[in-house]
Each structure stands twice: as structure tokens, then as C-alpha cells.
């Protein structure tokens, strides 16, 4: 189980995948043991940088630092205000694809036979003229 950086449309993207190419069984086995942590922080932390920008009269360009780790390997990327929506969309797609262990809501769509019988028995009202 490794984390790899994939460059898609000029920015980094986190993809979880298994390095072995022996088939789906290995991938599922690897995924069962997996844990992933993604940290999002504001990357303009340096006070010196901010003071420089403030004294120069330039607008502060905020950047977002994203780090992902599986406990062994860590990857990171910095996203600017222009790229953040594109990154977010791709990131959301990956999360949806890989978070398969979460429970799906159980819908009670099965109608009881008693209710069905009642519906069949009841006659429809005639339309008002």
C-alpha cells in the first residue's frame, strides 16, 4: 500500500493504490489494512514573509498546504487560490472512490404484503364532474 503523487492538470493529486500488480485480491487485502490521514493547513505561516508583503504594500497571496500520509510515506502539495476549486473537485472524486468501507444507509423499500392487499381492495373515488 503506497501513496503516490499524480500530476493531473498542473497540480498534485493524492491517489491511494497498491504497488503490486497481481490482481484485485492484493489490492483489497492492502486496502483492508490501510489508514490515511490528510492534513490541510494555511501555508503562509511565516511572519517575516507576511511583514515583507505588508511593508511592500503587496496583497497577501494565501496558499493552502495539503499533506497526506499512510503512516510510512508522506506526500504534500501547495494549492493557490486559482487552483483550489479544481483540486477540490479531483480530491473529492478520489475520496468517494476509495471510501468504500463506510456504511450505506439501509432503505426500507420493501412494502409489507398487508399494505399491498389494502391498496388493492380499496376502490378509487370517482372524479368530480
Amino acid at each position: 500500500m503506497v501513496l503516490k503523487r499524480v500530476f493531473q492538470s498542473s497540480h498534485s493529486l493524492f491517489v491511494i493504490f497498491h504497488s503490486d500488480s497481481k490482481g484485485e485480491q492484493n489490492e483489497t487485502e492492502a486496502r483492508v489494512q490501510s489508514m490515511i490521514a490528510v492534513t490541510v493547513t494555511s501555508s503562509l505561516k511565516s511572519k517575516v514573509q507576511r511583514n515583507k508583503l505588508a511593508t511592500a504594500g503587496e496583497a497577501i497571496e494565501y496558499r493552502c498546504l495539503i499533506r497526506a500520509t499512510d503512516g510510512k510515506k508522506t506526500i504534500s502539495t501547495s494549492v493557490g487560490p486559482k487552483d483550489h476549486q479544481r483540486f477540490q473537485a479531483s480530491y473529492a472524486t478520489i475520496l468517494k472512490a476509495h471510501m468504500t468501507a463506510l456504511k450505506k444507509r439501509e432503505r426500507k423499500d420493501k412494502k409489507k404484503p398487508a399494505e399491498a392487499d389494502k391498496r388493492e381492495g380499496s376502490s378509487k373515488r370517482p372524479k368530480k364532474s
Partner: peptide
């Protein structure tokens, strides 16, 4: 406190927890 706040998402597949 925007400078020192961080947001962490941790997903454990074996437990099925986020």
C-alpha cells in the same frame, strides 16, 4: 486563529471509520 489552525481527515478502512 487562521495561521495555526489545521484540519485533519483520518480514514481507517479496516474499521470503516472517518
Amino acid at each position: 486563529d487562521p495561521d495555526s489552525t489545521r484540519y485533519v481527515m483520518k480514514y481507517r478502512h479496516c474499521d470503516g471509520k472517518l
